Simulated assay, not measured.
Amino acid sequence: MILIIVALIIIIIVTELMLFKSNTNYIQEEYSIVRLKYENILENLKLKNYYERREKELISDIKCLKVLSSINQEDVINILNEHLSLCDIKVENINFNEVIDNNEEINEELVTIINVKMEFKSTYNNFLLLLDSLQNNEIDFAIISASIFFSENEVVDGIIEMNFYGILMSID
């Protein structure tokens, strides 16, 4: 009888030890899962902080740009007319194209690019005055190309291609 009691006690102790070990393994697995989740959250917080800093930098950069919040053909005509009248240049032809640059990802709702190709006649000196005037413009735009062809009596036929930009951002 004592042997049976001792055997039962040993069986109970072994069973308890096995349950304890099983619970310990379960707790270790749960701890590993919780630790992994914690590390993921920590990494996400680091990424969040990085993206918030980067967003502030980009917003600061955008605020420094001298670009209109929106641009249309009328705006471009007014800008060009101001420069052309200062330089006494007559435009013979002007073409507008709304363009999105395929080399970059641009959200079409936020960025407008108007490509302008302008053909004109002027003197060489007036052409140089126009280039200087355009470079000193208060609004940033890109001169893509400028070509001139000399003809008679110091008159040049010129073509200038430009991109005007509008960036619509609700930045606070």
Rank of each mutant, 00 (worst) to 15 (best):
E161G: 01
S151I: 15
I89V: 06
I77V: 13
E43F: 03
T112C: 05
S122E: 01
L134E: 11
I113P: 00
I94H: 04
A146G: 00
R54V: 07
E161Y: 01
K46Q: 07
L58K: 12
I59C: 07
S145A: 08
I171L: 07
K121Y: 03
I167Y: 07
V91H: 01
M18A: 13
Y124C: 03
S60E: 05
N103R: 13
L19R: 11
V99R: 12
I94A: 01
I94Y: 02
E82P: 03
E154G: 11
L129M: 12
Q28S: 12
D132H: 13
I4C: 07
M162P: 04
N97Y: 04
N49W: 04
E108N: 09
E92C: 08
Q28D: 15
I106H: 13
E74Q: 08
H83E: 11
S122K: 02
E154D: 14
N153A: 06
L47K: 09
V67C: 07
E104R: 12
K37W: 02
K63W: 00
M18E: 09
L130T: 01
I9A: 13
I5V: 15
V91Q: 03
V14T: 14
L128H: 09
H83W: 00
I139L: 10
L8I: 07
E82M: 08
E30C: 05
E154L: 10
I114R: 11
S133A: 07
E82W: 08
I79N: 06
N153Y: 04
I94T: 04
N93A: 04
V156T: 05
A142D: 15
N102P: 08
L8Y: 03
L134D: 00
I139N: 06
